[in-house]
Design a protein around this nucleic acid. Structure first.
Length: 340
DNA sequence: GTTGCCGGGCT
DNA sequence: AGCCCGGCAAC
């Protein structure tokens, strides 16, 4: 059962270039806004991962600072400033899928305080931009605010066809636990199995945005049909009711595509067939490894004994004198006469 | 292509 | 168990 993207998005969203267009007369205010945001991004308020430093709170603070003088469009402009280098792709199909289903769809209260997710999470926002930006992109979407000019340790999901990169181990563990291992999304309990499915990587935050376009040669049109994935919806429903339930948060199509692919590959849910393979023409070293381990060759060459040095009945007597062969040779078994 | 023989089917 | 053969790997 496929659901086309058009089913979810009756009206095509405006292109990014359109969004980026700013009303005249707001330029100076936007500069001020950018300055404020820059200040915020390095301020202790933001760095402090306290629950109060939630995205919404900070967004409100920004709005307050702007004294209502900057329009929503301007805020969009600011967001694009942070992501300008990868805004060329409206679909946001990057091979190292940084989408974090848990965050935009269900910004669970405790984990959403991890402001370090900002950058990658925002790429998720871009991922869903088609359906998100037109109406409710601004107010309820987690917004990146910080960008550190340093190497940052990220956590990359190693699951096949899932190249999700999160900034926290807990996040990636939760991702693996809920998405790939099919465990309860509400529970933070971990038996450690997730550790096998992610690895730490260092990411240069300065060049990350540039690398995004290079890392993923995927077509912008390859956003798979928005899948209806029970796990994802369950997760969304199971989250805290205090979280603003934005329309954006209810959908994470690209991520779900990955999920389907993953499960199909893993064979854990064979019935769920993938629809998102075309998302990844990219390297799949991990998947190859997995496939190799799964396949069981008919003949294990390791057990087959090497051919003996001695000539056998067939070679000695030839096909003409087959009656002189030992029975084993006649039966195409291991020669009993000229053993090694 | 040839040779050795494993795996498996048939009786 | 005896017989036979497909098919694979080494040569």
């Amino acid at each position: 059962m496929r659901i086309g993207i058009s089913d979810l998005i009756p009206h095509p969203p405006p292109s990014l270039s359109v969004i980026h267009r700013k009303p005249s007369g707001h330029a100076d205010k936007e500069v001020m806004a950018a300055t404020v945001l820059t200040t915020l991004s390095t301020s202790p308020l933001v760095l402090n991962p306290s629950p109060g430093a939630s995205v919404d709170t900070e967004c409100k603070a920004i709005w307050a600072l702007l004294a209502g003088g900057v329009s929503e469009t301007s805020c969009r402009g600011w967001k694009e400033c942070l992501s300008a280098s990868y805004s060329s792709s409206t679909s946001g199909n990057w091979s190292w899928d940084a989408s974090d289903q848990s965050v935009p769809s269900t910004p669970s209260p405790p984990l959403s305080t991890d402001v370090n997710k900002s950058f990658l999470i925002y790429s998720q926002g871009e991922d869903n931009i088609e359906e998100a930006e037109s109406t409710h992109f601004l107010f309820e979407d987690p917004i990146p605010r910080k960008r550190k000019n340093s190497m940052k340790v990220m956590f990359k999901c190693l699951w096949k066809n899932c190249e999700k990169v999160l900034s926290t181990s807990s996040g990636i563990q939760r991702h693996i636990r809920t998405i790939h291992l099919g465990r309860n999304g509400d529970s933070d309990y971990s038996d450690g199995e997730e550790d096998f499915y992610y690895s730490e990587i260092e990411v240069n935050m300065d060049t990350l945005t540039e690398g995004l376009s290079n890392l993923t040669p995927t077509s912008p049109t390859t956003i798979g049909p928005p899948p209806v994935f029970p796990l994802g919806s369950d997760m969304a429903q199971s989250k805290s009711a205090t979280v603003i339930n934005s329309p954006l948060s209810q959908s994470a199509p690209s991520t779900l595509c990955h999920i389907r692919t993953d499960h199909a590959y893993q064979g854990a849910h064979v019935g769920i067939l993938s629809t998102g393979e075309k998302r990844q023409p990219v390297v799949q070293t991990i998947s190859k490894t997995h496939t190799t381990t799964i396949s069981t060759p008919k003949h294990s060459t390791g057990t087959r004994k090497p051919r003996g040095e001695a000539k056998k009945c067939r070679k000695v007597y030839g096909m003409e004198k087959k009656d002189l062969w030992c029975t084993a040779c006649r039966w195409k078994k291991a020669c009993q006469r000229f053993t090694d």
